[in-house]
Every structure is written in C-alpha cells, then in structure tokens.
Design a protein around this nucleic acid. Sequence first.
DNA 1: ATTGAAAATGAGAAACATTCTCAAAAAGGT
DNA 2: ACCTTTTTGAGAATGTTTCTCATTTTCAAT
Lengths: 148, 148
Amino acid sequence: MGEERLSKKLHASGHRLTRQRRLVMEVLEESDEHLDAETLHDRAKARDANISLATVYRTLALLKNVGLVEEHRLGEDHAHFEAVQEDPHYHFTCLRCGRVIEFDAPQVMEVMQELRERYGLCITDVHLFLSGYCARCQPFEQGGQDED
Amino acid sequence: MGEERLSKKLHASGHRLTRQRRLVMEVLEESDEHLDAETLHDRAKARDANISLATVYRTLALLKNVGLVEEHRLGEDHAHFEAVQEDPHYHFTCLRCGRVIEFDAPQVMEVMQELRERYGLCITDVHLFLSGYCARCQPFEQGGQDED
DNA sequence: ATTGAAAATGAGAAACATTCTCAAAAAGGT
DNA sequence: ACCTTTTTGAGAATGTTTCTCATTTTCAAT
C-alpha cells in the first residue's frame, strides 16, 4: 500500500528506507486504533524481535516530520500515533471505557480561516480533542467497565 | 476575588482549605499566562518558601477536579495550567517564538451539539489546539528569535 | 479554646514516557 | 564489493509527574 509513498517521502527528505522504518509504518497502517509507542513496539517485536523502543520513537518522530504520521494526546500521559488519513478528523475519548470516536467537523476549517485572516497565522497543525462519557457509559458515569 | 469560590468548591467536595491551596489558586489567578507546574512552584515559593512541588501537583489535580483549573497540552512535553475563565477559549502556539494566542470560536459549540445528537455523548471537556507560525515568525519559519 | 480523627503536606524516592549516547551494523551510491 | 554516512540497539540519562510515609495541619465536635 503505502510502501512506495514511504520510500518516496524518505528519500525526498534525505533519509534511508530501513527494515525498521518499513515495519513501524506497516504496524501503524494495519491498525486503525491509535497506538502508543509501547504497544507499537510490542507489535513490531512480533515480526522483528530485535527492534528497539528507541528506534520506534525515532521512527515515529521522523514519520511525523515527513507528514506520514500524526501524534495525538488523548488525555493520557503518553502520546498516541496514527497513520495520516485522507481527510482530517478529530477525537472524542470516553473517560470511563476509553473508547475513541473519530469525527469530522468542517467548522474547524472556518475557524482556521478566520484565524489566518485575523492574526496572519500560518497553521501547520490542528487538534480538536473532546472528552466525556459515551452513550453506553452515561447511566453510570464511573466505575470499572472496559472497552467493547 | 475567588477566595470564596475556592472555599466553597473545596468544602462542597469534602476537601479542606489550606494555605497551600489558597496560594496555588492565587498565583494562577494573578497570572494570565499558562503556567507550568515548575514555574507555578517557583512563584509560590516566593511567598511560602516551604511549599513542595508535590503539593503543587496535587493541588492542581484537585483544582482541576473541582472545576477551577484547566490543564492544557500546548505542544510541549509538560502541562500548562490556567484558572478557569468566564467564557471558553482555545489556543494557538507559535512553534518558533512560543507565543500563545487565545481565541474564541463559537463554531466549536455547534460541533459539540452535533456530536451530542449523533452519538449521545456527554461532553465534559473540549480542547482546540492549533500550532504553526505567528505573523512575526513567518518570514523566517525557523531559527532563534524568542518571545516578544 | 482544646482535642482528636482524618486529611494534607514535605522531602525524597519511584514511576513513567521519552530522548540521548556511542559502539556496532546496515544502507545506498559509486 | 567498497566506502561513507546514516541508522540501530541497549542501556543510561532526562524530565515530568506520582507515590510513600512520617509529620503537620485542618476542622468539627467538644
């Protein structure tokens, strides 16, 4: 799938295509969840037992720089990563069950346009992040039920 | 100012009003910047040399829980804190000079309403965070100029 | 005001995520 | 295949935030 795009982007930015970088990108693309570095490392180790956590972090930073990966802070103390999608989208996290809902919101584009006009900004990154309780978790609002 | 509100909120949630909690709240209210825990600790120490960093963190967590303080991730590896304001607002950070611009965006309310209707969510928190380059920093886009 | 139980604090240790260091290994142009 | 440069692995180091626990403080009831 993105094999070629990866190779292209890396070479264009003067970086080499390594087994580890291919692997990190693959794991990210195969998962539609938002993985944290450690989970990603675990999954990568299943296919390359020697890949190190440092390499995972380095690769994620690189892939982010070349625009193939996005980093999100979903209310936890660590980052989550996701292969860049076709169209922009934003996130809601349920504080109780941890479910993440992705959604689009064209209004955000308006907001960006207004900011550009009003402050002369050049915007490179947008994060809209909401949290609260999903429909299933509202009757309770706290306690110990986990994901699906 | 918020002395009474602090006392009220704390007692209502079964917590005590201590010298340290008053101090943390004061420092936050006197600053319109978004302080990180260490800066806040430094400023608090100027008035109570013994206040510990652990207490600052504990107090910030508590004040956040009772709705007096907001925590933001402004693209750095540590959190920033702010006394809750009258009306909601969002943030832009300049990646070069670090300037933070606050702005309102009524469109966000629309988005929330749509999400509530569509997914039955109960939303307790909203963060809209943009980054890029402010007007002053656009001619350069990288290098070493600092704040104002 | 005094007391006593429960909550909060200070100091440093611990936990956690992330970055750094550097010798050894791998990539890619020639 | 070779050589130069980049990348990697492993663990040490860093930075932020939380935990531990003995001591102190708060506050409701005396």
